[in-house]
Amino acid sequence: MNSNREIIVELFEEHSEVNFYSIRYSDNELSEADLFFDKVLDNEELDEDVEILSKLLDKIGENGAELRHFRHAGTKSDKVAALPEYLSSTNLRLYAIRLNEKIVILGNGGLKKTKTYNEDPFLNECVETLKQIDRFIGARIKNGQTIVFRKELMGNLKFYFKE
């Protein structure tokens, strides 16, 4: 029997110029971004990169989510990207939807040890989930079910994925 899994987009952090949202499966207490940071904090090798990423989120939050701060991850037509765009030491990736300069929806991610994210099942799932949410949000913005107002995302932010 096919069942649907519910995903909720909710506010993760608020900054002066940008709101960061994250996605949360309704059967989890923690959002995907919480799970990402929890996971990478356990890896001592990533200490510096995690600190850099956290500071980068602060700077983006204060200054705006410019395209150049993100590495495009999905297809040409979607807004899925990875943060940071560049790290000299590791290939740590936090996948996100850069909806516009003021709204970013954080997903999950990890250390990319393969040439492309598609070759890593977990990272591939992170990106594919965000691609779907990007499509759903786009459609709901068009039909008015979801509203973007300055740095706020409002309206219907629950999505259902078939398992």
Partner: peptide
């Protein structure tokens, strides 16, 4: 403004040189 608990923990212990560097 709402801040995330885990990120606040990282900010508290983040190295000063990382703040300066970024």
């Amino acid at each position: 403004m709402k801040k995330n608990r885990i990120l606040n923990k990282i900010r508290k212990y983040r190295s000063k040189y990382v703040d300066i560097f970024v």
